[in-house]
Design a binder for these strands. Structure first.
Lengths: 220, 220
DNA sequence: AATGTGCCGAACCGTACCGTACGGTACCAT
DNA sequence: ATGGTACCGTACGGTACGGTTCGGCACATT
């Protein structure tokens, strides 16, 4: 690992290269992501690759941050006028979450990071958690806290509540996809699944429940 | 991939070799799992490795089935006399599930399978799903159906209910562990987390709930 | 015109690893 | 004793890949 990718702003030419590399990774997995293959596919020289990214690991890290910067938190605008619209926001969030996690880019990058996670000081896993999970987690947190402020939800700890929401939505689908299972996820099914999850979530954390949500905080 | 590992009964000597290989994989990841390293660590020759397992992939598959055969479903005996004992069984199952998933062997093998999952016809992911998830899923299914028979639980589809239970227990912990995050999972915390998950599960599927659990079946 | 810079294409080097082959050894059966 | 079998240790061929170097081209600066 040569250079920290803090700068994260690349030249257009470098962005093209990263895009090509990502496509290569999505198509053929890590085995296909050789420096020679990237240079060939991107019509650039290996020398330039090493000049720009210093290292193969640096290139991989750049690909990760590049993809993360593309995802961002689209549709952050919450229109929390009514309880129904807030619930709709939660549903939209669920669908977005499932869509992102089941997307080919996300799967390819997660597979890459997980496959490398056993390497002693491998930064890819931390990068994925930092740039991937944190972003969408933050979006969810603001959404949840918003719901609590407006008395739509009743809970104590935001992080714990978000983890429950995540579990209800994702279940073991992510790992199964990572392991290569192909799931026929038509858009309608995705929506149905999301609504079912939100329904269960409301039964646990909806403000109109008689029981208070005093689940003990976790130390994980 | 040479030979299907259907036989799954290896000679003691071969079991020793597989044990050594697994230890090697756990310690150093896939990079460390070279045929030469296995032969060196297990005091056998590479020729024997190829005679026994046919191929490097065959060896890896053998390691997977070997580890899966070690896990099995310990403590399958359910003593479902009272509602309390049934709930205790669910808690035990939760703790077992979290323990297995966070164990170093499970993490190493899942990382291996996920890292290879992009290879076109890679059988490791399917193997993991077949030998890993199915086994513990079956145990959970019998447990759940047992609870429904005794009117402790009320639900429609066993698979869907199990997936919800799984989500409540595991959340995103598995993926975070796979990505390399170190979580301080003391035994007491594990128990607390499990009990919290079961508590939530009962609020969704407990038979004493007023609402009926008619969540639409999923097509995933 | 001369010089410098950035890049491409290609060749090259060192290394790591899979798979195989070969010599040597211990054990067993005939 | 003789032959067969299974195994170990090692060495080798072939290949793939990371990283470096070199020649050449286009373009900008002076």
């Amino acid at each position: 690992m040569a250079q920290s990718a803090e700068a994260q702003d690349f030249t257009p030419r470098q962005n093209d290269v990263l895009e090509t590399a990502l496509a290569l990774l999505v198509e053929g997995g890590e085995r296909a992501l050789t420096t020679a293959a990237i240079a060939r596919a991107a019509n650039c020289s290996k020398e330039s690759l090493y000049r720009w990214f210093g290292d193969r690991d640096g290139l991989l890290a750049a690909v990760i941050t590049f993809q993360a910067s593309k995802v961002r938190t689209d549709a952050t605008g919450i229109s929390p006028l009514t309880p129904a619209s807030f619930r709709e926001s939660l549903t939209i969030f669920s669908v977005d979450l499932l869509s992102v996690l089941s997307g080919p880019s996300s799967l390819a990058l997660n597979r890459l990071a997980i496959g490398q996670a056993s390497r002693e000081g491998s930064p890819f896993g931390r990068l994925m958690l930092e740039r991937g999970r944190k972003i969408i987690g933050t979006r969810a947190a603001t959404l949840l806290e918003h719901g609590r402020q407006h008395r739509y939800l009743a809970y104590e700890d935001t992080e714990t509540t978000y983890q429950t929401l995540y579990g209800l939505i994702v279940r073991d689908v992510h790992v199964r996809l990572l392991l290569g299972e192909t799931i026929n996820a038509r858009r309608t099914d995705l929506k149905k699944q999301a609504e079912a999850a939100i329904d269960q979530f409301y039964r646990l954390y909806g403000a109109d429940n008689q029981t208070v949500n005093t689940t003990s905080k976790e130390t994980g």
